[in-house]
């Protein structure tokens, strides 16, 4: 092999949910700005997902509906599992995509998740009942531990903002798997991670500076 780095492929899983278009564009821009030669592939083909260097599971919408959409693509859950769990490739779940990494979702009905980050996805109940639900808008992140995806990103009260829009949140069984939280009448899980698995409740593809920096970190991540 020569010293030349082969370009990587990122598979953004297309299962009929949400906003793949803007996720793909945000990844393209993050790659360009980071000077990375990365191929961004929006795909519903399980083989392409299984063989991708990095995998992204986006998700917008209701939990049960997203799960049904994922199951409706034959072989997709298996392909994701091969890439993320067996091959240990970097995996990023976004919003409901992150929630699907949990054990189960409790939105409208109880729906099994992938069970990769043990925990339930239940309604947000802020301590202050005057706080509006959905948790919608720009909030800062409070890191619970270091993570490569947050490298170089200013967090805390004076830090950059991430865009959230959700009524349900993941309560991880293992506190060590919560990477960051947002404060909304109590802590709301904002980011989870273990080994090569990461997930964000907020939308990096809608979070301007913070988002593009996080996506670039994901593209460079060597867990």
């Amino acid at each position: 092999m020569s010293g030349r780095t082969l370009s990587e492929t990122v598979a953004i899983i297309d299962y009929g949910s949400g906003n793949l278009h803007s996720a793909a564009k945000a990844f393209e821009r993050a790659a360009r700005e980071a000077g990375l030669d990365t191929r961004i592939l929006v795909t519903g083909d399980p083989e392409a997902v299984a063989s991708a260097d990095r995998v992204v599971l986006p998700g917008v919408g209701a939990y049960a509906d997203c799960r049904r959409g994922l199951d409706a693509v034959p072989g997709m859950v298996e392909a994701m599992t091969r890439a993320a769990i067996q091959a240990g490739r970097p995996f990023l779940g976004i919003c409901v995509g992150m929630q699907l990494m949990a054990t189960r979702g409790l939105e409208y009905e109880t729906t099994p998740g992938l069970g990769w980050i043990p925990g339930d996805v239940g309604p947000i109940r802020p301590a202050d009942p005057a706080l509006k639900i959905p948790h919608m808008g720009w909030n800062t992140l409070t890191p619970d531990r270091d993570h490569a995806l947050l490298a170089g990103i200013s967090t805390g009260e004076g830090g950059l903002h991430a865009y959230f829009v959700h009524s349900y949140a993941l309560k991880a069984d293992r506190p060590g798997e919560v990477v960051a939280h947002a404060d909304y009448g109590g802590p709301v899980t904002a980011m989870v991670g273990r080994d090569n698995l990461a997930g964000t409740q907020f939308h990096p593809e809608k979070s301007q500076r913070l988002g593009l920096a996080l996506l670039a970190n994901f593209l460079r991540w060597r867990p």
């Binding site: 949400g18 917008v60 209701a62 509906d65």
Partner: peptide, 9 residues
């Protein structure tokens, strides 16, 4: 619409 796409949107 909310049941299909989530209330958030």
């Amino acid at each position: 619409a909310a049941e299909k796409f989530g209330a958030q949107c």
